[in-house]
Each structure stands twice: as structure tokens, then as C-alpha cells.
Computed example of a mutant assay.
Amino acid sequence: MKSTQLQLLKFPIGEFQKPDTISSEMINLWINDLERFPSEIDKATKVLSKEQLNWTYRPDGWNIKQVVHHCADSHMHSIIRFKLALTEDSPTIKPFYEDRWATLIDGNDDTLDDSLNVLRGLHSKLGQLLKHISEEELSREFVHPDHLKRLRIDETIGMYAWHSNHHLAHIKQAITYEGYFKM
């Protein structure tokens, strides 16, 4: 498989592109994406069998259940990052080894209920929090030590909306390919 084909499988909606200007309309669209994500992921996975939950979206990619469990793990970090940025002066966040987390027992559970429940509650809280952030608070930052850069809240809202849509596309891609890619 060519590297351009693999890149399309890895990033089916493209990589996140931070806009030069982030408007309030854009923020509202991103928050809407975040709020609807749990129901979209539930709709995409609720009729899948255990065999189908093991389908991967690309060669050497995660399977569907790992993607769902990863989203719960990653988005738990997201709300903590937002709250740290809102309550501290440019805090340095704690990154995590998502590839290692995906191999843990809960990252491979055939039952998605716990992760879907986490996503429903988390995204409800996230929506409530983000809808009430002031213009001034949108410019607050946190430091990501792995990337050695400061990230603003407004761009991070976009990154997590992209992350949600990115992984939803992975799930749909795995379903489309019906287990063609083996782990």
C-alpha cells in the first residue's frame, strides 16, 4: 500500500488545521460537534458484534473498540486540560502514552458501555463548560511538554472537535472495510 493511501487511512478527514482566525461561530460549531459526538459514536457501534469491534481502520491501526475506549481516555484528559488552563496561569499538562493505554485491559474490553457512558457524561460537562467561557478565557493557555508549545483554549476546542470527528471517521472506515485490515 502506498504511503499516500496509508496517510488517507490514518487521517480520513485530514489533519487538524488551526485557522488563522477563530470566530465565535466556529467555536459554536466545534462545541456542537463535541456535544453530539457520544450519540454519533453510539449510533455507529451499537449493532456491532464482538468480531466487528475487532475490525481495524488501517494496517497497524487500532480496532473499533480501542478507538472508542481511547476517546473516553483522551477526552477525560481534555476536560482536565481545559479546567487547568481556566484556573491556573499557563499550566504544564501531563501527557499520556495513548498507545500503551490502548493495550490495557479496559482498552480492549468488548463491551463499550462504560466508555460510552463516560463519553456521554464528559461531553455533556464539556459542552456546559465551553459554552460559558468568556472571550478573554478563550485566550488562556496550557503548555504541552511533548510539543513544547503553548496551546490556547480556543484552538484546543477545535482540536478536540477534530479529534472526535477523526475517530468517528476511523470507526466508519473500519466498518466500510469490514475487517479487511487485520491486527
Rank of each mutant, 00 (worst) to 15 (best):
Q5V: 14
Q7A: 12
L9A: 14
L9W: 06
L9D: 12
K10C: 13
F11Y: 15
F16D: 15
F16I: 15
Q17R: 11
K18F: 02
K18I: 12
P19S: 10
T21I: 12
S23V: 06
S24G: 08
E25Q: 13
E25V: 11
M26N: 06
M26E: 12
N28M: 04
W30C: 10
I31N: 08
N32W: 05
E35I: 11
F37T: 13
F37V: 10
F37I: 09
P38T: 06
S39M: 09
E40S: 12
D42E: 12
K43R: 13
K43T: 12
A44N: 00
T45M: 00
K46G: 03
V47A: 10
S49A: 07
S49G: 07
E51D: 13
Q52P: 04
N54I: 03
N54K: 08
T56R: 07
Y57T: 01
D60L: 10
W62D: 03
N63H: 01
N63R: 04
I64P: 01
I64H: 04
Q66R: 01
Q66N: 01
V68T: 06
H69C: 04
D73H: 02
M76N: 12
I79Y: 01
R81N: 09
R81G: 08
R81T: 05
L86Q: 05
T87Y: 01
E88L: 08
P91F: 05
P91V: 10
K94S: 12
E98K: 05
E98W: 00
R100E: 11
R100T: 07
W101K: 06
A102F: 00
A102M: 00
N108A: 01
D109G: 00
D109Y: 03
T111I: 14
L112N: 06
D113R: 10
D114T: 13
L116C: 04
N117T: 12
V118K: 08
V118F: 02
L119T: 11
G121C: 05
L122I: 10
S124Y: 07
K125M: 09
L126A: 08
L126T: 14
G127Q: 09
L130I: 06
L130V: 09
K131Q: 11
K131H: 10
H132Y: 08
E135D: 15
E136R: 07
E137H: 05
S139F: 04
S139R: 14
R140L: 11
F142C: 12
V143Y: 15
V143D: 14
